[in-house]
C-alpha cells in the first residue's frame, strides 16, 4: 500500500463522503455471520452477476438490530435507504430483483428502527 500523507487525510470532507448511489451492505460481524450473513453475502454477489444486476455489494459491521440478523442495507437511487432484517438467500434474490431492478420495496422485511 502506498504511504498516506497528512494532506491525504486533511483534504477529506466526510460530510461529502459518497458511497455512490447504488449499493448494498451486509452486516458481517460475529452475530451476523452466525445468523447466516456470509451465505447472504455470497448469494448477493453470485446472483447479481448471474442476473446482470449492477450494484456495489460491500461488507460492514454491526448495525445494531442484532436480534433480526442477517441485516442488509440497500440504497438505490430514487428510493429511501432501507434496512432489511431476517434476510435469507431467497430474500436476497428478491431484493435484487424487486428492489434493485424494479425499484419496489419488499414487504415485511424493512426495519425502521430509530
Amino acid at each position: 500500500m502506498k504511504k498516506i500523507t497528512k494532506e491525504d487525510i486533511e483534504k477529506v470532507d466526510p460530510s461529502k463522503k459518497d458511497l455512490g448511489k447504488n449499493w448494498i451492505k451486509v452486516g458481517m460481524s460475529t452475530c451476523g455471520v452466525a445468523a447466516g450473513a456470509d451465505e447472504v453475502y455470497a448469494a448477493l454477489i453470485d446472483e447479481a452477476k448471474k442476473r446482470n444486476i449492477e450494484i456495489d455489494i460491500r461488507k460492514c459491521g454491526c448495525q445494531g438490530a442484532c436480534s433480526v440478523e442477517p441485516l442488509v442495507e440497500v440504497n438505490v437511487e430514487g428510493l429511501p435507504k432501507v434496512l432489511y432484517g431476517r434476510v435469507t438467500k431467497d430474500v436476497a434474490v428478491t431484493i435484487l430483483e424487486r428492489h434493485v431492478r424494479n425499484k419496489k420495496l419488499l414487504h415485511d422485511y424493512i426495519f425502521e428502527i430509530n
Binding site: 460475529t30 452475530c31 455471520v33 452466525a34 445468523a35 438490530a65 442484532c66 436480534s67 440478523e69
Partner: peptide, 15 residues
C-alpha cells in the same frame, strides 16, 4: 458475543 440471537450454541466453528 451473539446475545441478540440468544439462546446460542456453537458446534466447532458454526454458531
Amino acid at each position: 458475543g451473539c446475545c441478540g440471537l440468544a439462546p446460542v450454541m456453537m458446534i466447532d466453528e458454526k454458531v
